[in-house]
Write a protein that binds this DNA or RNA. Structure first.
Length: 405
RNA sequence: GUGGGUAUAGCUCAGUUGGUUAGAGCACCUGUUUGUGGCACAGGGGGUCGAGGGUUCGAAUCCCUUUACCCACCCCA
């Protein structure tokens, strides 16, 4: 027997239903905020991710499905969605227009990690990217949209926010932080020592307790923001307060991808194990430029569909459509004709085998059909069908007219 | 990459100090007189006990090896 590869899963039945429901609910809400669907390739040039996600990140450093294709190209299965959308934005030359563009997407992402609860090698994200909007009101709106999505899905969460600064204030802060880190480097773990040169900000969210202890006195980005960043961060908090959206400021919240600046946020659940982030995002005003586009402010988020599948409150599936069956073999051709007609507008399940009444009733129940439609000898003779509403428990015999009933 | 745990029916799991043809619940199929689903009752199909080797008269059970999965570290949505 051939099993799926490690860290890859089939979704069927109830799981597939959850998946569809999350995508449908999220898409519907995103559309209300002006987002439109975008589909980008799963396979991209490796350079795209190296330049956007960042070579210092673990994702690019050790988790990518990277290989050479038959044409000798260095390619990668996308490990996240933003890079591809930004690349598509630039490829379509939308960066040369002045307008605002909002896109949503969903689909598989690939990271070669050790699987565990809430972490697969092929997993799915739903995401939104907003281009051309500089205002912090957009940051707020995006967060608001996420709360609306989670509320619609019946999911509880904690919202954490931070500001990562911008090219004006970040370099100074970074220098300050490196200075501090050099002073305590003897007490920090191996990873953090490496990060001092590769990506010092990442030390802040090191999970090592000893590191956290020694980093507690580290300078905080939120206390070293430039005027513009500071004022935007304050505005964001005021807007959230006014909207009644609860949040925590976590100055150690550092997104794992290098491209974020200013607003960064994360939605966390305490009900799904160690992999608790259910959505994350932030502003990436410099990314379009890094990928050779014209400077364009942008902000986005992604949510992890599999993680949310464990939390979503599903509405009860109603009985739907028709179950049709014959109680005498001669009636099957009538069943087929009627089914074809009904299928122009409704879901129809056909039982090809001629069976007893009770057996058909069981079949209709199992098919979760709203209506059971049967033809026996009497009905065939009279040109009628017998139909029962499985929910209301009402039944009648109807005449077939114009091939329909 | 590092730890720990678990592998018995489609699913969730029992299986006593090694002892006859390996069990339960759920699910599935067929019946309970050719006309009423969910309920009940009766019957049925389905397992080389993850794989390989060893100890033994005898192994699901003890020992070794191996693989897969799960959880945690790490990473992140």
């Amino acid at each position: 027997m051939i099993n799926p590869l490690r860290g890859m899963k089939d979704l069927t039945f109830e799981e597939a239903r959850r998946f569809e429901y999350i995508v449908a609910t999220s898409s519907q809400i995103a559309r209300r905020y002006g987002y439109r669907y975008i589909e980008t390739p799963i396979l991209e040039e490796t350079a795209l991710f190296k330049r956007s996600v960042g070579e210092s990140s673990d994702i690019v450093g050790k988790e990518m499905y990277q290989f050479e294709d038959k044409g000798g190209n260095d390619v990668c299965m996308r490990p996240e969605g933003t890079a591809g959308v930004v690349r598509a934005f630039i490829s379509a030359k939308l960066d040369r227009q002045q307008g605002k563009h909002k896109f949503f997407y969903y689909g598989p992402m690939f990271r070669y990690e050790r699987p565990q609860k809430g972490r697969l090698r092929q997993f799915h994200q739903f995401g939104c990217e907003s281009f051309g909007e500089e205002s912090v009101y957009e940051d707020f709106t995006l967060i608001q949209m996420l709360t609306q999505i989670f509320d619609a899905l019946g999911i509880g969460y904690t919202l954490q926010i931070n500001s990562l600064g911008c090219p004006t204030c970040m370099p100074d802060y970074r220098t300050q932080l490196v200075g501090f880190l050099e002073g305590v480097k003897g007490h920090l773990c191996e990873d953090c020592n490496r990060r001092i040169t590769t990506n010092p900000i990442r030390t802040l969210d090191c999970k090592n307790e000893s590191c956290q202890h020694h980093l507690s006195a580290a300078p905080r980005i939120t206390e070293n923001l430039c005027e513009s960043c500071q004022s935007d961060f304050e505005t964001l908090q005021r807007l959230l307060d006014e909207a009644g959206i609860a949040y925590e400021v976590d100055s150690n919240l550092v997104r794992g991808l290098d491209y974020y600046s200013k607003t960064a946020f994360e939605f966390v659940s305490d009900a799904i194990g160690a992999q608790s982030a259910i959505a994350g995002g932030g502003r990436y005003d410099r990314l379009v430029e890094f990928l050779d586009g014209k400077p364009t402010p942008a902000i986005g988020f992604a949510l992890g569909i599999e993680r949310i599948m464990e939390l979503v409150q599903m509405p009860k599936a109603p009985r739907e459509g028709y179950y049709m069956g014959a109680m005498t073999p001669e009636a099957l051709s009538s069943i087929l004709r009627l089914a074809a007609r009904k299928r122009l507008s409704d879901t129809v399940t056909i039982e090809y085998a001629s069976k007893g009444f009770k057996s058909h009733m069981k079949g209709a129940d199992k098919a979760h059909a709203r209506y059971a439609v049967l033809i026996g000898e009497n009905e065939l003779k009279d040109g009628t069908i017998w139909i029962k509403d499985m929910e209301k428990n009402t039944e009648e015999t109807r005449r077939v007219e114009d091939g329909d009933f």
